[in-house]
Amino acid sequence: MIFPGATVRVTNVDDTYYRFEGLVQRVSDGKAAVLFENGNWDKLVTFRLSELEAVK
């Protein structure tokens, strides 16, 4: 189960963010908004829950 605050990895091989890890900001309607941070940039991207896996 994916909840806000969880760290997730993108599993969709066709996505630009494949294998990126980010922090879930919100979850609704089968989608999750994931925040990616890297140095001087932040990006908030929405994914279907089926495209994400929780990082242990």
Rank of each mutant, 00 (worst) to 15 (best):
M1P: 12
M1G: 13
I2D: 01
I2W: 04
I2A: 02
F3V: 13
F3E: 09
P4A: 08
P4C: 08
P4S: 05
P4E: 08
P4M: 06
P4W: 05
P4Q: 07
G5W: 03
A6M: 14
A6G: 06
A6F: 07
A6I: 12
A6Q: 11
T7S: 07
V8A: 03
V8H: 01
V8S: 00
R9A: 04
R9N: 02
R9V: 09
V10A: 02
V10N: 01
V10Q: 01
V10C: 06
V10P: 03
T11M: 09
N12Y: 04
N12F: 04
N12Q: 06
N12W: 04
V13Q: 11
V13A: 11
D15V: 06
D15A: 11
D15M: 05
D15S: 15
D15I: 05
T16C: 13
T16L: 13
T16D: 11
Y17R: 05
Y17E: 02
Y18P: 01
R19M: 15
R19P: 06
F20E: 07
F20S: 08
E21F: 08
E21I: 15
E21H: 09
G22Y: 02
G22T: 01
G22Q: 01
L23K: 13
V24W: 01
V24I: 04
V24P: 00
V24L: 03
Q25P: 00
Q25Y: 09
R26Y: 14
R26D: 11
R26H: 14
V27R: 02
V27F: 03
V27I: 10
V27S: 02
D29E: 10
D29I: 05
G30W: 04
G30E: 06
K31D: 06
K31V: 12
A32I: 06
A32P: 01
A32Q: 01
A32R: 00
A33N: 08
A33E: 15
V34E: 00
V34K: 01
V34A: 00
L35I: 07
L35F: 09
L35N: 04
L35E: 03
F36T: 00
F36D: 01
F36M: 06
E37S: 14
E37M: 13
E37L: 11
N38T: 12
N38L: 14
N38K: 10
G39V: 08
G39L: 09
G39S: 09
N40M: 11
N40G: 12
N40I: 11
W41G: 13
W41T: 11
W41S: 10
W41A: 11
D42N: 15
D42K: 15
D42P: 13
K43C: 14
L44C: 12
L44G: 03
L44M: 08
L44F: 06
V45W: 04
V45H: 06
V45L: 08
T46V: 13
T46R: 06
T46W: 15
F47S: 03
R48D: 15
R48N: 15
R48P: 15
L49W: 05
L49Q: 04
L49E: 07
L49A: 04
L49H: 03
L49D: 05
E51K: 02
E51I: 05
L52I: 08
L52D: 00
L52M: 02
L52N: 00
E53Y: 05
E53H: 05
A54C: 11
A54R: 08
A54D: 05
V55E: 03
V55G: 03
V55A: 05
K56D: 13
K56T: 14
